[in-house]
Design a protein around this nucleic acid. Structure first.
Lengths: 206, 206, 206, 206
DNA sequence: CATGAATGAGACTTCATTCAT
DNA sequence: TATGAATGAAGTCTCATTCAT
């Protein structure tokens, strides 16, 4: 009985979170009212506040749920026996596939948290930075192995890599870039190609 | 007399714009009130509405003023007789120097417009895209010349290049990255190095 | 079995009432939520509504339980063969000892009911007035006996007497007056001394 | 012009304060909405917030305006060459006349602040205590002069005196006591009579 | 008896914008 | 041009109460 209730409760909570994703993606976090979330979820206004302390906490929860999965994936990859290039490819794959699988959720995370560094992002700056650091770690070890040049600092390389992916996702999100399975696969390859081999056919050392 | 008055008026307008930069940078666009701008400028509340139709128009103006200068610079560069790599370097230089010269203004433009794609950025999506297209044009012609490989689409290359720069600026803005003249110069070189030559010492063609 | 259950039920009810005293005393009636009472009592949210029709009824019950005891005590005293001064002393004693014995309950009754004449007090105005009238009756008969002067109307004398006690209790409650066994005994004497003999060494008849 | 505007502004502020007195007196502070005040004053909702930071600040202002006048009056009286009894009479007069002159304002101050010790009163406890202390000072000096007995502590005497007056005013406010010019004058005399000469015809020293 | 999820009206406060002077 | 008082719509959050289990 209690177990049953807990399950039902968990389902309502999930119902609200899923509704929030749709509403945030459609209207934007600041442009939507809490009642929009409740309406979308088909529950009463106050129930949102039964499960979450505030509107912010709803977005918080969505972000952390997903971001932590990504951090775990990166940490896991890092431990595997792969060449650095493949590690970066796997990270790019995970992010692109996340978008393919749930574009609305990724839109919310990128637009409302990751890129909204002014307001909400500040709260999660540390969490976001953690991702950069994990990527920088991969680069650093690749440099130690001699697989990567040491002309670029690891931290900086991580920024460039993540920045490129985020920009591509932004392109899809704001529909300034064509979307589709072909494009998704191409993007994974190209971002790694660009960062690992560069655009130039030949460039003298600076 | 009329001319003199016009000049005074123009100065008041500028006073308000400059104050807005400081206030937006400090508090964020959504977190500040119109009265904060007026207070910072030392003018009356309503005067902001004498020179601007709305709070949005103030940010609008700040963004367009600067962004158009950048577009002009890129267009101008594109016409010059430089190798592609130097064109990219010049663009990176312009953006980094813009930040060095007026970090508050660049913070506002990046945080509140360029990255705030959810709300304000939408308005200027076309203007922002224009920059990508100019950069893509440079890449495209470099590929035609044989200076750049054609494994990466121009549009995509532009996103990666601009994404890397924006991410670095974000690092400075949110103070997750050290700032200073050395870092500024290093950043210019490294972003171009990364995008043109890649990180890998050697990578087989995919 | 039924009796046993009734007893258990009665105990739960008492549990809730006692918890309510602590919560009301700590947070104030309006500042606390029904769930705070339930939490303090260690029972489920809805159980409060099983025993009481509303949050108001909880306070209602606490007030009436205690106030009726006081009215009975006064009525009882009035029938005894005591000089008026000793009757007043006994009333003052009862009230002060009530506070000594259960300061939280008295705090709630005075702060949230007796003095909260704006909202809750209105409900019990008649009950509160009843106390004044009983005291006024004592004074009236004392005047008929010649023990008290008839320069002050009985009703008025009752207000002054009760007002003085309430003010002293307020002093203890809000900690603007030192508390302790000595002070409690002193207060009983002084309030009667003041009201019966006055402060002045000598005052001409007005 | 500026002076004119300031005057107009001050008048609107006063308009809101006066409306607030009527609304608070009629509905009670907690039971009225800010819009009720605005409606009563015939101004827009937001104007209340133009002149006051919050609903609380409106009540705050009303209380302090009046209470400070009273404190000044008491301080002033204290410096005059009057017998203690006349000083107490003057204080009682001032309070009773305040009620006669503006019963709604006094109702608000007593019901919502002075007696609402639970919530709002706490804020002004110090201010309220100041009044007790001034009265206690009068008693103390009267005892030093030999005009008052020293069987009752000054602080306690002040509480009894003020408590008696407050209780009488409460009686008028809640209409459990008849009101009228005769009653007002009588009250002034009787409260002083009670406190200075006592109710008893003869009482042995305790 | 007991539970606590679900409901939804209500209130404060904010602030962009307008407008009379 | 300049001022800042005035407007009022909008949105978050609270919490007493109900109800299904």
């Amino acid at each position: 009985m209690a177990a049953r209730n807990e399950k039902v409760a968990a389902e309502k909570r999930r119902l609200i979170l899923d509704a929030a994703v749709r509403v945030f993606a459609r209207q934007g976090f600041n442009q939507c009212r809490v009642s929009d979330i409740a309406d979308e979820a088909g529950v009463a206004y106050g129930l949102v506040y039964h499960y979450f302390r505030s509107k912010d906490e709803v977005l918080d929860t969505l972000f952390l749920e997903r971001w932590n999965v990504m951090l775990d994936v990166i940490r896991d990859l890092d431990g595997q026996d792969l060449v650095p290039r493949d590690k970066l490819y796997a990270i790019a794959s995970f992010i692109v596939d996340s978008y393919r699988h749930d574009p609305e959720l990724m839109k919310v995370i990128i637009v409302e948290v990751t890129r909204a560094a002014n307001s909400f992002g500040q709260t999660h700056l540390q969490k976001i930075t953690e991702a950069y650091e994990l990527i920088a770690g991969i680069v650093e070890r690749a440099q130690a192995d001699g697989a990567f040049k040491d002309t670029v600092t690891p931290r900086f390389a991580a920024l460039a890599f993540y920045g490129a992916i985020e920009q591509v996702l932004s392109g899809w999100i704001f529909e300034t870039l064509p979307r589709g399975d072909t494009e998704f696969e191409q993007a994974k390859r190209l971002v790694v190609e660009t960062v690992c081999r560069g655009l130039a056919t030949y460039t003298p050392a600076p």
